[in-house]
Design a binder for these strands. Structure first.
Length: 514
RNA sequence: GCGACUGUAGUCUAGUGGUUAGGAUCUUGGCCUUCCAAGCCAGAGACCCGGGUUCAAAUCCCGGCGGUCGCACCA
């Protein structure tokens, strides 16, 4: 599938219209950092609000906001510090890079070389005369690859801190307070949306792999002896496409199409809660415009799973730019994290059952990458429409996602039409809509500009507005127009953004493109 | 991190050891304009950064930074 054009087109529009662009551009940029512009921020926030609607508000789950800079103790306990340190060595002849500790283990039969530290690894590499396993060339001095950002807390001699590589740890370290605030009832969930940082070795493809990005994460805590999910029935009929561990091992191409109910019943998905969130996740992506056939859940093989996980499904989306990409991980984190923090802090985080026994809650985690979703929403919504004169870019964002909901413009900028349009614009703003006013260039140009940032409705003030108070609404998707009276505007806008059909708003006065 | 290719107005691009660095589009002001990037006039806006070679570098060389692709990595 060669569609490099799609990506290039989108990047070009993104920069030109202000969705996003590389950060620190005036100083030459650094890979892995992106700045969102006005319409990009609005789109991203709308997606975030939608996620909260699907994963948090309807269930009455908790939210927290935890620091980005963390005590090093958090990641010592969680296992991240141990798992983030890697000694990498590259070949001076062929340039290939290797895990230095793994090469030593292969050559000497030693185990857990990594835990011996950097000096030992460098010494062992020399003493054992380890060469490049591919071409036999001389290996360069190994360097520490730390994919967590480190920082200093306090001006002098302060404590070492780390920038969080996931938001999840905040939900674990604050579990006890949240549990108590929830009047010690379980199951319940805590979520957090926020920036996380990973010092990626090689960030690529714009927002696909960033060093600083936004995660929307939720940790659902439950009792492993009572693992049922009270909302499973709401999504159990959802059909999802799954590639199981078995299928992944035999490299099956076609995903299994199966209902959530069956997937849980057959044990393909280990817990009801994970099944539930996979169902919710499918619906959430549909609400962003991604149809079911371009979604799938792919199981991680044991070796590729994180140190904390007993089962993980990536939620993947098929894009035109990059093929199948991961937009979320649905992980079964078991009691790994709470146990780890209990051990590290000495604080008891166990929960009391009615029968007097205690247990450490198990955790199901859906974790969505907001930057990738923002790109996916753009790509999904994007259409390049051929007109007799040229190509027009249109973003068919769902109404709830569009950066601006309404644009207001005069048909021409004379005879008082601009002034009238400004009063309508004020009215629309005071009704609470995200709106924009435009009187530059010709009317066609203004419509084109709005299509290119995905504004679903355009209000045009013309001479009949001046004479009879009748204005026209234009539909972004069909370019059709209906006429309504200016007094009806608040009512009509409300109806439209509640989901009313465009044509139901008023009398059709123009078909698309006329 | 390694290799190949690559970097010119906001965007897309022409160009080359000596150019007033050209065009398109966007954009700004004016004129015009009764519905899909119309037209006319005027304006604004660029050689990624740092060294080197040279009488002269945007052009050639080296390094950095960015981008695309491949390898490795993606806890």
């Amino acid at each position: 599938m060669s569609t490099g054009n799609v990506y290039e087109n989108l990047i070009e529009i993104a920069k030109r219209r202000g969705f996003f662009w590389p950060s620190f551009e005036i100083y030459g940029s650094i890979a892995g950092f992106t700045t969102y512009g006005d319409v990009g921020v609005k789109l991203k926030r709308n997606i975030e609000a939608q996620w909260r609607e699907y994963f948090v508000r309807r269930q009455g789950f908790f939210e927290i906001e935890d620091p980005i800079v963390n005590s090093s103790k958090v990641f010592e306990s969680s296992g991240h510090l141990a798992n983030f340190k890697e000694y990498a060595s590259s070949c001076s002849q062929c340039g290939r890079g290797f895990r230095a500790d793994h090469l030593i283990e292969e050559k000497t039969g030693m185990e857990h070389v990594e835990t011996q530290g950097g000096d030992a690894i460098k010494r062992l590499l020399r003493e054992n005369n380890v060469k490049c396993p591919v071409c036999g060339g001389q290996l360069k001095e190994p360097t520490l690859v730390l994919t967590m950002f480190q920082t200093q807390i306090g001006a002098t001699g302060g404590e070492v801190g780390y920038l969080r590589p996931e938001a999840a740890q905040g939900m674990f370290t604050n579990f006890k307070r949240c549990y108590q605030a929830n009047r010690e009832r379980i199951p319940f969930a805590i979520s957090q949306q926020g920036k996380v940082l990973r010092n990626e070795v090689s960030p690529r493809r714009g927002v696909h792999r960033l060093r600083e990005f936004t995660l929307m994460e939720l940790e659902l805590f439950f009792d492993p002896v009572n693992p049922s999910c009270q909302w499973l029935s709401e999504v159990e009929g959802e059909k999802v496409r799954i590639i199981t561990e078995d299928m992944e091992e035999r490299e099956a191409k076609q995903p299994l199409e199966i209902t959530i109910k069956e997937a849980v019943a057959k044990g393909l998905v280990l817990t009801e809660w994970q099944g539930y969130f996979m169902g919710v996740g499918k619906r959430f992506l549909e609400s962003l415009g991604v149809p079911p056939e371009r979604q799938q859940y792919r199981a991680h093989l044991p070796l590729e799973r994180s140190h904390y996980s007993s089962q993980t499904f990536d939620h993947e989306v098929q894009t035109r730019s990059w093929g199948w990409i991961e937009v979320a991980g649905h992980a079964n984190r078991t009691d790994y994290d709470l146990k780890a923090h209990q051990k590290g802090s000495g604080v008891d985080v166990s929960v009391l059952r009615k029968n007097g026994t205690r247990f450490i809650p198990h955790v199901i985690e859906p974790s969505y990458g907001l930057d990738r979703l923002t790109f996916v929403a753009m790509e999904t919504a994007w259409e390049q429409r051929e007109t007799p004169k040229e190509k027009r870019n249109i973003f068919h964002f769902p109404r709830t996602l569009a950066p601006y909901q309404v644009s207001v413009q005069p048909l021409v900028t004379k005879d008082g039409l601009s002034e009238k349009a400004l009063t309508v614009y004020d009215k629309v703003l005071s009704e609470g809509y995200r709106a924009t006013f435009d009187e530059g260039g010709s009317i066609g140009r203004r419509y084109a500009r709005q299509d290119e940032v995905g504004t679903p409705l355009a209000i045009t003030i013309d001479y009949t507005t001046m004479e009879k108070g009748v204005l026209t609404l234009r539909d972004r998707d069909t370019w059709e127009q209906v006429a309504i009276h200016v007094d009806e505007l608040p009512k009509k806008l409300n109806a439209y953004f509640q989901g009313a059909e465009f044509r139901a708003l008023g009398q059709l006065v123009a078909r698309g493109g006329e």
